[in-house]
């Protein structure tokens, strides 16, 4: 009898402390998930300003210098400008993972009707899908802009009568690679992205023109 009581009391205490732990975890998560702070920012346009300065200096420098080594350097500056634009696109589209997961939990707490497994699966898929989409759009924008920039460099050189076949060959190659990367990232949606947006059509739900929908939705 004593043994049974002891076992019961241990079980009870374990159970209750487990319950407290759960509650504490939820409170802890609620407190910290919503305070997920991004890196220090000077102002909200700093990405655009610094990216634009790279593009401005890269282009002005490129089209005013006659030196091959300086042209290569300025085209690296242009590239950095577009890489940062790509990073800005990623930051804009990426999910705030902690906050999204907290919203998921809060939603579950509020509605008791939800089918638990289906509800959480959808939420997790949403996070993965948003992350995949952010990465894909970042590559899409960066690669297509870079391909455009390298072609512009070739055209600009030709207009100035400054045809450097070696440099131009490099730009043709890079423009080609970036075009392929852009095309690939346009079409290659991950299965999570496909699934999430097929269940939740967010952009133009009632559009009859599928092509338009795709072009807006990427």
């Amino acid at each position: 009898m004593k043994i049974i009581i002891l076992t019961l009391s241990i079980l009870f205490s374990l159970n209750s402390s487990f319950g407290k732990e759960k509650l504490r975890s939820y409170k802890f998560f609620k407190k910290h998930a919503l305070s997920e702070k991004p890196k220090y920012r000077y102002n909200e346009y700093e990405g655009i300003i610094s990216g634009a300065s790279a593009l401005l200096i890269g282009n002005v420098g490129y089209f005013t210098t006659d030196s091959k080594s300086m042209k290569l350097t300025y085209s690296l500056v242009q590239t950095i400008g577009f890489l940062n634009i790509g990073k800005g696109v990623y930051d804009f589209y990426r999910p705030q993972v902690y906050a999204e997961q907290y919203k998921l939990l809060r939603g579950y707490k509020k509605s008791s009707k939800a089918n638990t497994v289906e509800y959480f699966s959808h939420g997790i898929i949403k996070n993965i899908a948003l992350e995949d989409r952010a990465k894909r759009l970042s590559v899409l924008y960066t690669s297509s802009l870079l391909a455009g920039q390298y072609l512009l460099n070739i055209i600009g050189d030709k207009l100035r009568g400054d045809e450097n076949s070696q440099l131009n060959n490099i730009y043709y190659f890079l423009a080609g690679v970036n075009t392929v990367a852009a095309a690939y990232s346009y079409f290659s949606r991950s299965i999570y992205e496909e699934h999430y947006y097929s269940v939740t059509p967010v952009i133009i739900p009632s559009s009859k023109i599928i092509g338009l929908q795709a072009s807006f939705q990427f």
Binding site: Y42, E46, G47, I49, S50, G51, S53, A54, I57, G58, G61, T73, L76, V77, I80, G81, L83, N84, K87
Partner: peptide, 30 residues
């Protein structure tokens, strides 16, 4: 500011103007 940096250096015999652009992969300074 963000991914851009500019520097001016002055001494009696040297004058420098530097522009620096950085990204996650690498950086270029002129």
């Amino acid at each position: 500011l963000n991914s851009f940096m500019g520097t001016i250096g002055i001494s009696k015999y040297f004058k420098t103007l530097g522009l620096y652009f950085t990204s996650d992969l690498g950086s270029v300074g002129i």
